[in-house]
């Protein structure tokens, strides 16, 4: 139990031990733990950033949807207006065409009526003349009724 040279040997051993522990355990392990701390911090900040970006993206998406809706409404309104326009135009065109056809038909009818009238007049006259001829051949002296016949022919 005396203090001997063992003390000095143990002191040297102790110093060497400190050096070895530092070299093989403390230095690599604390460096690794520092790296891990850094990595975790990076991961956390990245996730924070990701969250923030997600929020921004969501906001942007909402904005875009809103704009799209507005645009769709606008386009819908335009389309409605345009379709009304087209319908109106078609209706007007149809009306005009109908009027044109109607008036053409009316004119045709009028002409046909006129022609029929003339035809009828002519036939009536011919009939009258034929009838008159028959009557006159029997009873009327051509000479005596010459004046009347001439008058009749002239009138027709």
């Amino acid at each position: 139990m005396n203090i001997t040279v063992t003390l000095i040997a143990q002191m040297i051993a102790f110093v060497v031990m400190i050096w070895l522990v530092n070299k093989f355990l403390w230095a690599p392990l604390s460096a690794m733990m520092e790296a891990r701390r850094q990595r975790i911090a990076d991961g956390l900040s990245a996730s924070e950033r990701g969250k923030h970006e997600l929020k921004l993206a969501e906001e942007r998406a909402v904005q875009i949807i809103k704009e799209a809706k507005e645009k769709a409404t606008e386009i819908l309104a335009q389309a409605n207006a345009r379709s009304n326009e087209i319908i109106d135009e078609a209706r007007n065109n149809a009306k005009a065409e109908a009027d044109r056809i109607l008036s053409g038909a009316r004119a045709e009818i009028d002409r046909e009526v006129e022609r029929a009238k003339q035809e009828l007049g002519k036939q009536v006259a011919e009939l009258a003349i034929a009838g008159a001829e028959r009557i006159l051949k029997r009873e009327v002296d051509a000479k005596a009724h010459e004046a009347a016949l001439a008058d009749l022919v002239a009138r027709i």
Binding site: T4, V5, T6, V16, L20, F24
Partner: peptide, 28 residues
């Protein structure tokens, strides 16, 4: 006298020290 080396003390402590260093190297 003073120049006594306690071999048991030295051997056991150095063996334990070697054990620590060995374990440290394995982990490190």
């Amino acid at each position: 006298g003073f120049w006594t080396l306690n071999l048991d003390t030295l051997i056991v402590s150095l063996m334990l020290g070697a054990l620590i260093v060995f374990a440290a190297m394995r982990v490190g």
